[in-house]
Design a binder for these strands. Structure first.
Lengths: 389, 389
DNA sequence: CATACTTTGTAAACTCCATAGTAATATTGG
DNA sequence: CCAATATTACTATGGAGTTTACAAAGTATG
């Protein structure tokens, strides 16, 4: 009924806002004194003092009693954000593997679990593997589902508003899978499902090659190409969750791009189709002419779709990620030259600096964002797992 | 030094926040009583009362003394937002014309001025025409430059962060023009320069065909094609201001699309090249086979670039605007069918509902947004024109 | 080892804002 | 003219942050 944007503020809300301000300041870095916090927030020392004490009693912060200091004056109590008050889970459900990470509220990974699956596994099999890896992860980390404040699962293919990949996904039978419904048997906290490229983009901005950028086109380059878009610092999903799926347009040749590598003449028959690309990249690095030609054609095709995204969005950075990013040394320069030819303004082209965990890392980031968003809009009550709305 | 995001709030700021809340409520619609405002804002009646009186003394609101009412009880004073406290200017500097609108803070247009220029006019000539139309507009509206709180000028071509069209513009010699610098001789208020397609997109969301949508791809279709992108409700410019310039990519055939119309066989030699497209659309409407084929080819080519934008962004709505939108009846259905073939998820395709003023209207909207943004972040002091920062 | 000095922690007085409750006022209907 | 009703004006109350003052806990210095 009432628009929250035009809702008046009363005194208690003011206290809440200032508490959140102090929490934000606390989270910026290591244990801080009341005086430091007062300087950061612009509040007075007494105000910060009572707020900090309130945060301690609520469980959002802990006190670090003063140790040996080398400065003049009375040693100050230090307050630290209690990152272990809650945890989040980020999962990457891929064709070949499932990777689950558990992290605290600061994003420190406290548990990692990996499990291989076959690409042909049917949904029941894959879901069973997912359930199993989640159960053992929780057990090994000494946690129970109520300790988890948010879960994000990364999957291949565009994810709609209900968390399903109804439009398309390469995983067999996976289109009908309702992951939020499935996981809600175990977790009462918010459950998010997101496309793997988009999550990788988030990870790259969080801890990877694009930490300084707010406008990012992330390329997940491999046997399948995908893209994740961060615009004005926020991951954009599009109205139906299908933003970045430029590969569907035949005119931009993303579908055919990897085939240049697979069909490169000279690949030994002993190399499996899955490993052909890696072989070609290696051969190209050693000077094989056919391989160099194949890579060149691959980059040329990749550049067309990338140029379409770059022209559409005019990003600051293009991040070359995905399985092929290990061979970024062979790709980056030429990709940049091709984009120069095709685009109005050339963005920086960088190689991904994260490994194969990047999708799961991005899933963590999205879960943490969800927690933060609830915190800063709904206010901080006692630190317990939020309920799904 | 200090991050405004983690700045504490004190009591006076709280009053300011609540004042802004009341202003927002006032602006939602017609003169409101204190009781109504209290209900909307959630504040108590006395609080709203003192705030409203403060707004009146500051000049942000006016009192409407009660007239004849048909309800029981003492008639209530009504408060109205004083939209005439300030005004903004929106200008469309096109190849053929300059259009200047003056509007109050509610967006009501209070003055309109149009002036023809030749496409070949050099920058000095065009700037002189701009200065002249601005001067006469102000004079006719009975205003002086200090009465203007923000000015937006729409131009063709991507606009960089400094307000220049250094990358590209079809206006001769215009790339070197520094509009903000030029206009700052007259105005001390914020001066914005923006791409015409982007402004038209804003207008369409403000008063046109896409008022309900937050994710919009706007097509400015004419002898030149352009696009404006609204994502999550906000106009996106891209890192260098060149977002939406998909037309630069040859693979998507936007450059060649209008030539199908111009080169259509059967156009009488009496028709000027500028009017050829209109002739073809009319002929197609009357059943001319050649014309229908030309239109069909035009739409096919237009659809490729549009599909690239749709796949990249996954918008809710595609708005077909620009000069050709008068012939939307011939285009929309087929465009929709082509997009259906090319895209993963088909967005709604709608025709623009605004006329040739849409760029200037969008310029007004951007200027109003600038004013609002300053209001709601910097707080409301006395209602006077803000200074450029 | 005592003193001066510096910084932190805490309490009190003060200001400002919103709320709640009450009295006064103005209008309509009987 | 009086009762009912809704608005406006006024006062008291409580909460939150700031300022000021002072005690407490250390280090530096003679």
């Amino acid at each position: 009924m009432t628009d929250p944007a035009i809702t008046g503020t009363d005194l208690s809300r003011l206290r809440e806002l200032n508490s959140l301000t102090v929490v934000r300041a606390l989270r910026t870095q290591p244990p801080a004194t009341v005086t430091e916090l007062a300087k950061i927030t612009g509040l007075s020392r007494p105000a910060v003092d009572v707020i900090a004490q309130g945060l301690v009693t609520d469980g959002w912060a802990t006190v670090v009693e003063p140790g040996a200091t080398s400065v003049v004056g009375r040693p100050a109590r230090r307050y630290r954000f209690r990152a272990t008050a809650g945890h989040v889970i980020g999962v990457d459900v891929g064709a070949h593997k499932i990777l689950a990470l558990i992290a605290d509220l600061d994003g420190n990974v406290v548990h990692t679990a990996r499990r291989a699956v076959t690409p042909e596994a049917d949904p029941d099999e894959r879901l069973a593997a997912l359930d199993e890896i989640l159960a053992t992860s929780l057990a090994e980390a000494g946690m129970t589902p109520p300790d988890i404040w948010a879960v994000t699962v990364g999957v291949t293919g565009p994810v709609d508003a209900t968390g399903k990949t109804t439009l398309f996904t390469p995983l067999p039978g996976w289109r009908a899978v309702d992951l939020p419904a499935h996981l809600s048997d175990v977790f009462t906290c918010p459950i998010l499902v997101e496309n793997d490229c988009k999550l990788a983009a988030l990870a790259e901005r969080w801890q990877g090659a694009a930490q300084d950028a707010n406008d990012i086109v992330y390329l997940l380059a491999g046997m399948r190409n995908g893209a994740g878009l961060i615009i004005d610092g926020v991951l954009r999903r599009g109205f139906g969750g299908a933003a970045g799926e430029i590969g569907a347009l035949r005119a931009v040749r993303w579908l055919s791009a990897p085939s240049h590598l697979q069909k490169c003449p000279g690949v030994p028959p002993t190399v499996s189709p899955d490993d052909a690309a890696a072989w070609v990249f290696n051969a190209a690095r050693e000077g094989n002419r056919d391989a160099r030609t194949a890579v060149s054609r691959y980059v040329k095709d990749l550049a067309v779709g990338t140029a379409a995204l770059v022209l559409a969005l005019d990003p600051q950075v293009v991040v070359f990620g995905g399985g092929f990013s290990r061979s970024a040394d062979l790709v980056l320069d030429q990709l940049s030259r091709e984009l120069q030819k095709l685009c109005l303004r050339l963005p920086e082209v960088r190689a991904s600096s994260l490994g194969a965990d990047c999708v799961a890392l991005g899933a963590l980031r999205l879960a943490l964002d969800e927690v933060d968003q609830r915190l800063f809009t709904l206010g901080l009550s006692a630190p317990v797992a939020p309920l799904r709305t």
